[in-house]
Design a protein around this nucleic acid. Structure first.
Length: 430
RNA sequence: GGGGAGAUAGCCAAGCGGCCAACGGCAACAGACUGUAAAUCUGUCCUCAUACGAGUUCGAAGGUUCGAAUCCUUCUCUCCCCA
């Protein structure tokens, strides 16, 4: 094992991933390998790209020679964190929670190195130490050390006093705080990290450690990432971007990164890749010379897609993108053999249509609204066609009353429908 | 407990008896320009309908009227002020 050459704090700073830290955190990390953790909320069976920031923190932490621990919140997930929420949360059932935990665990394993060694990553579940902790013991042994005044002062609580929050959510910070205490006490964890909205919860933990045992523990938070236009990161028109290929296809995932604006991509390259500062600066300089090449976006999309999915998924996504967005004219499309075609369009929605409907010719409006779900109604199909927003096999429809028959089928079997610039549908005729 | 203000489409916000499917802004979607970027300009934006048009909206329920988002009654909820 080589001596770690990277300084974690420095690393976070130039990447723009450091919001705040407790005094002494830097010194602690310089002294030697530290065990630190981040908690994940099991509200879904898959992590989204929004969670990726935290995952990357753990990854950088490990790369800097420390020991990352991911905490999946089997217990805290049952309570509900009021941070950043404007209303009382719906509680999930135990079954769902468990399924979610398993899903997230699998994804975390793709990022961190779990092989034995001084920086070996691990995953813990706080349900393990909470399941047998009864209420009376908890309020005697833990609650006794923290005043309500202290708890009320947290922003997450303060902002909810007007609209109201249940005792359950109010106690959340204590439950999370106890996690930190438990891990500090029994597993030697000294540092908790998280998004800036977690600062209050994390400091309740360090406070608990101080009051219960006079111990010292540290905290560090990352800024909330936002897009340059101020909108939320990680969402598109069609919803959240997930790591689970069943919820977001690798093609879409790849496209998500490729579509980042220039401004955003300069942040993303720092946060979501492990490229060194020199590499990033060089890439940026090159990008600025020819922004139309979108080198940054491509570099990010490549690294993240390979890490989350696989090299072959990445290659397929690139191939599909080139065909869909490149200058490939209709002829190029028709030259594709069936296998390539199906491979390329694996990530785009596919719809069936019977051959009989087509042989005698069918108006495109009927085809796209009644026979398939490309459009929910004829009116909408008509409007977009009139607006010049619909293409079939890369050819723009200019006539609202156009009729489609079996002549233009790719491989005598497929139709590629394009709605707007980025939405594709593959119609399969059989 | 007393007094006042308000509730309009995804959000903000006009309208205060017919010209209202409802000004305007934001968001969203599409087109042009570009680089699958940003900015800008243009179009669409309650639902269905090629269109003519039809249907369902202005917190809820009733009522007045030829006609109501607009007037009246009751109810529900929100905010403010005084106790």
């Amino acid at each position: 094992m080589s001596i770690p050459t990277l300084n974690f704090i420095e690393e976070l700073k130039w990447r723009g991933m450091l919001q705040d830290m407790m005094p002494g955190t830097d010194e602690l990390l310089k002294k030697g390998p530290v065990k630190g953790y981040i908690g994940f909320d099991p509200t879904s069976d898959s992590l989204g790209v929004g969670n990726l920031v935290q995952v990357m923190i753990l990854l950088h932490f490990q790369r800097c020679g420390h020991q990352p621990v991911a905490l999946v919140g089997g217990a805290t997930g049952m309570v509900g964190d009021p941070s950043g929420k404007s209303a009382e949360r719906n509680l999930l059932s135990e079954d769902i929670l468990n399924a979610n935990l398993q899903g997230q665990k699998k994804q975390l394993e793709k990022f961190l190195d779990f092989t034995a060694g001084p920086t070996q990553a691990s995953i813990v579940n706080n349900y393990d130490w909470f399941k047998n902790f009864n209420f009376l013991d908890f309020i005697r042994d833990v609650g006794k050390h923290i005043t309500v005044n202290y708890m009320l002062a947290k922003d997450s609580v303060k902002s909810r006093l007007e609209s109201g929050l249940s005792f359950t959510e109010f106690s959340y910070q204590l439950v999370q705080g106890y996690d930190f205490y438990y891990l500090w006490k029994h597993q030697g964890l000294k540092l908790q990290m998280g998004g800036s909205d977690q600062w209050g919860n994390i400091t309740t933990g360090t406070e608990l450690i101080r009051r219960m045992e006079g111990g010292e523990a540290f905290a560090l938070t990352t800024p909330l990432i936002k897009k340059a236009d101020g909108t939320k990161f990680g969402k598109t028109e069609s919803g959240n971007i997930w790591l689970d290929p069943k919820k977001t296809s690798p093609y879409k995932f790849f496209q998500f990164w490729l579509n980042s604006s220039d401004e955003d991509s300069k942040n993303y390259i720092r946060i979501f890749t492990t490229k060194s500062q020199e590499e990033v600066l060089a890439l940026e300089a090159e990008h600025d010379l020819a922004p139309n090449q979108r080198l940054l976006q491509k570099a990010i999309a490549k690294e993240v897609t390979i890490r989350v999915h696989s090299e072959s998924d990445y290659n397929a996504a690139v191939e599909a993108s080139e065909i869909l967005f490149g200058n490939a004219p209709t002829e190029a499309l028709s030259k594709l053999d069936e296998e390539t075609l199906l491979n390329v369009f694996e990530g785009v929605p596919q719809m069936q249509i019977s051959r009989d409907e087509l042989t005698s010719g069918i108006s495109v409006i009927e085809l796209l609204s009644d026979k398939t779900n490309v459009f929910p109604s004829r009116g909408e199909a008509r409007k977009l066609i009139q607006g010049g927003g619909v293409s079939i096999n890369k050819q723009k429809l200019t006539d609202v009353n156009a009729v489609q028959n079996t002549n233009g089928l790719l491989q005598n079997k497929y139709l590629l429908v394009q709605k707007g610039k980025k939405n594709y549908y593959l119609l399969i005729v059989n």
